[in-house]
Simulated assay, not measured.
Amino acid sequence: MGVELGIIEGFYGRPWSWDEREATVAFLAPHGYRFYLYAPKADPYLRRRWQEDHPRDIADGLARLAGRCAELGVRFGVGLSPYELFRGFDQAAREALARKLGFLDSVGVRDLAILFDDMHGDVPGLAERQVEIAHWAAARTMADRVLVCPTYYTDDPVLDRVFDPRPDGYVEQLGALLDPRIEIFWTGEEVCSRELSPGHLRRVTEQLRRKPFLWDNYPVNDGQRMSQYVHVRGFTGRPASLAGHLAAHGVNPALQSTLTCIPALTLVESYARGDEYEYLAATLRAARQVMGDELGRRLYEDVLVLQDVGLDRLGEKEQLLRDRWTGVDHPAAREIIAWLDGAYRITEEIVQTQ
């Protein structure tokens, strides 16, 4: 395959259950998915309330998931978003960060990701402050891989509109100052990139002074608009030639854990088949692997409606979908019905508060 693949659970909205996480890891591991990064926006103890201890039930769940990943030969990691810590990295903040790092060590974290996304960048010396925090954490964690998500992790100007204009030379400064052993996340030309090219990745590699660690925002569907759709179509715009230009390829999955496995399998096929890859044929094969021949074919027939029409524009197609999937004893079928019922809807309030 030529590139390390993994899942980054990094979406807004209703998080996966522990059973769903373990089932996803167990299904994808034999197909080449080698890491799992736990970073759901719904875990406040990794984000706005990061200085507080995780409740015991979540801590136990993390330890069990880490153990299951280890059994399957999958690296387990956690994404920590120390909310705007770079505005005041004082002694109290350092003590809080040390406690959190100790907790993550205790549950068996191998990959530690320090995430500075979703934070305002109107701070003098932003890159230098973030590098200081990353180096401080890297010196104190037992994780054997450390990763950083920049505040500006894409060329997409939407980040400048939402989180203040990026400082001049921010990406280059981050790349120059950060220890070369620390990986840097990048999503591509857009937050949700339609395609990625070797030329773009070569340019970003020069800026970061290392190959980018791809945070791929497909098939994620966690925005107010995107939650109207279920992304089950096979990967496109990710040619196999990307492999030599990436440190690794992490997939931010859909809210529907079982259905996520369909596009996830097609990414494996895309890297394996190269120029012979056909995304629709791969979608059908993956659907059959995930759901069995009959249900996989049925799902394939519904790809256009699930992915392109939109929940609020289904019209009479909604009842057709309900007739096809109600009562079907398969988790993917239950996910489709839950989506029709509005269980996965994302509001702007959810995005603003998680």
Rank of each mutant, 00 (worst) to 15 (best):
Val131Asp: 07
Glu189Lys: 11
Trp215Pro: 00
Val148Phe: 00
Ala143Pro: 10
Asp222Asn: 08
Ala143Cys: 09
Leu126Ser: 10
Asp164Tyr: 12
Val158Met: 11
Tyr153Ile: 10
Arg225His: 10
Arg129Phe: 00
Leu174Gly: 11
Phe185Trp: 14
Arg145Asn: 06
Tyr153His: 07
Pro157Gln: 04
Pro212Phe: 01
Leu177Gly: 14
Glu206Cys: 12
Arg140Trp: 06
Pro150Val: 05
Pro219Asp: 01
Val204Asp: 13
Gly169Phe: 02
Ile184Trp: 05
Gly169Tyr: 02
Glu195Cys: 05
Asp144Tyr: 15
Thr205Arg: 14
Ser193Met: 04
Asp216Ile: 00
Tyr170Glu: 07
Ser197Leu: 04
Arg202Gln: 15
Asp216Gly: 04
Glu183Phe: 04
Gln207Phe: 15
Arg209Tyr: 14
Glu128Gly: 05
Asp156Val: 03
Asp216His: 02
Tyr153Asp: 09
Ala134Arg: 10
Ala139Thr: 09
Thr205His: 14
Pro167Lys: 15
Leu126Glu: 08
Ser227Trp: 02
Arg140Thr: 11
Val171Ile: 13
Thr205Asp: 12
Thr151Arg: 04
Gln224Asp: 06
Phe163Met: 08
Asp179Cys: 08
Arg129Thr: 02
Ala176Val: 06
Asp155Arg: 08
Trp136Asn: 02
Trp215Cys: 00
Asp216Leu: 01
Phe213Met: 09
Asp168Phe: 11
Arg202Lys: 14
Val204Ser: 13
Ala137Lys: 00
Tyr153Val: 10
Arg203Trp: 15
Thr187Lys: 00
Arg194Trp: 03
Val146Asp: 11
Ala134Ser: 12
Lys211Tyr: 12
Leu214Asn: 01
Leu214Gln: 02
Glu183Asn: 07
Thr187Arg: 00
Pro219Phe: 00
Leu214His: 01
Arg209Gln: 15
Leu214Ala: 03
Arg202Ser: 15
Arg202Thr: 15
Pro150Glu: 05
Ala176Leu: 04
Ile182Gly: 07
Asp222Gly: 04
Ala143Val: 14
Tyr218Met: 00
Glu190Leu: 07
Asp155Phe: 09
Arg145Thr: 08
Glu128Ala: 12
Gln130Met: 12
Val146Lys: 08
Arg129Cys: 02
His135Arg: 10
His231Gly: 04
Ala143Met: 09
Pro198Asn: 04
Met226Pro: 00
Val232Thr: 09
His135Leu: 06
Asp156Ala: 07
Arg145Phe: 12
His231Asp: 02
Ala143Arg: 03
Glu195Tyr: 04
Glu183Gln: 09
Ser197Met: 07
Tyr152Asp: 08
Lys211Val: 00
Phe213Ser: 10
Arg233Ile: 02
Arg181Phe: 02
Pro165Arg: 05
Leu196Glu: 06
Val230Asn: 03
Arg181Cys: 04
Lys211Asp: 10
Met142His: 15
Arg181Ala: 07
Asp156Leu: 04
Leu178His: 03
Arg210Cys: 13
Thr154Ile: 03
Arg140Phe: 09
Leu177Asp: 10
His200Pro: 05
Ala127Cys: 05
Phe213Gly: 05
